[in-house]
């Protein structure tokens, strides 16, 4: 059993360990790596991914997937930008609301019409992207600078970027929901064994409904930050965000088959991938090598592959115990 525990410990803390090592590496190698400017800009930028990954994490823990988050964020940014002249809060509400609408449709498709999550959210990915382009008339939509909408993405609060605060609050709430509410435990139970969960009398469909709804809302919120940070609604942004989110969730040790997962490790996964990107940029800055964005993608892809392979190895050890009779 001790070996088993060691393996499961590695599974849950491996990503944190890797994150620490990467930060140490960066600190030792680059002068301004742990400087205030670098830290805040990394956090400001990655908070959008963090929000999307949080929603994805809950969806994946139920054994599902949400491919629509990137388009939903783009749609959210366009809607928020269009609404921003009415006031910062109206813009915020409109962006999140647009995300919740997409989430609602996903939830209905998956739980009521029993369409496979992959297919349902793939369709919504296309639909949301098209809607964003239509609303924006195929160009970026400039936000209102008078209403204070841009401070959501660009200002600091207590010396810390506001998007980072938003992400922190979202992760704390997510952590509490997962660990200290019956709905949160139900998320893991549904992903672990949906039939058993139904037979146990838990509202499996309601739980699944909630995760898709929430994922849409979080993607919409990420879109609001996007529009606010860059001063414009971006109908063509968000491409590939869903893949980044899935990668962060998987790196965080959440099983793609559902049933096992952690909010904290997902955050660590987001930071790990984000900082890896940051480190590669610094490395380019040193001038020894010059890695193009394409090479960076290759490296991130390889990194992800290593993590997934390790995870498969670890979980196949775990399943030996399931059949031990």
């Amino acid at each position: 059993m001790t070996r088993q525990r060691l393996i499961s410990m590695l599974g849950s803390y491996g990503v944190v360990l890797a994150l620490l090592l990467l930060v140490l590496f960066g600190w030792a190698r680059y002068d301004y790596f742990l400087g205030f400017f670098n830290i805040t800009s990394v956090l400001r930028y990655n908070s959008m991914f963090a929000l999307v990954a949080l929603g994805m994490c809950f969806v994946i823990m139920t054994g599902g997937i949400d491919l629509s988050v990137g388009s939903t964020a783009a749609l959210g940014s366009v809607v928020a930008a269009l609404a921003s002249p009415q006031g910062a809060l109206v813009g915020l509400g409109a962006g999140v609301g647009a995300g919740l609408c997409v989430g609602l449709i996903n939830a209905i498709l998956v739980t009521r019409l029993k369409i496979m999550p992959f297919v349902a959210t793939l369709a919504m990915m296309l639909a949301a992207s098209g809607t964003a382009l239509l609303l924006a008339d195929n160009q970026s939509v400039s936000v209102s600078y008078e209403s204070g909408f841009t401070s959501i993405g660009q200002d600091n609060f207590l010396g810390f970027p506001i998007p980072a605060w938003i992400a922190i609050v979202a992760y704390v709430v997510g952590w509490i929901v997962l660990n200290f509410t019956s709905t949160g435990r139900g998320v893991l139970a549904v992903g672990g064994n949906e039939d058993a969960t139904r037979l146990m009398g838990l509202p499996a469909d309601r739980i699944k409904f909630l995760v898709y709804f929430a994922s849409g809302g979080l993607a919409g919120l990420a879109g609001v930050i996007l529009a606010s940070q860059f001063g414009a609604g971006q109908p063509i942004e968000g491409v590939g965000w869903e893949l980044f989110a899935i990668a962060a969730v998987v790196v965080g040790g959440t099983l793609l088959t559902g049933g096992v997962g952690s909010v904290g490790a997902t955050l660590a996964g987001v930071l790990l991938l984000g900082i890896l990107f940051n480190v590669l940029n610094f490395e380019n800055g040193k001038g020894w090598i010059s890695l193009s964005a394409y090479w960076q993608s290759v490296i991130r892809g390889l990194f992800l592959l290593v993590v997934v392979i390790l995870q498969a190895k670890l979980s196949s050890r775990g399943s030996v115990a399931v059949r031990d009779y």
């Binding site: 509490i176 660990n179 200290f180 509410t181 019956s182 435990r185 139900g186 893991l188 139970a189 672990g192 064994n193 039939d195 058993a196 969960t197 037979l199 146990m200 009398g201 838990l202 099983l255 049933g259 096992v260 399931v322």
Partner: peptide, 30 residues
């Protein structure tokens, strides 16, 4: 009901498998 195939959630703790659906709460949290 205890069903023929053990209908539990293998990845979750014994406590969760026993208490899911009628969790003890304090201040609204588990």
């Amino acid at each position: 009901t205890i069903y023929q195939e053990i209908n539990l959630v293998p990845y979750r703790s014994i406590t969760e498998n026993i208490c899911l659906g009628r969790e003890a709460r304090r201040y609204g949290l588990l």
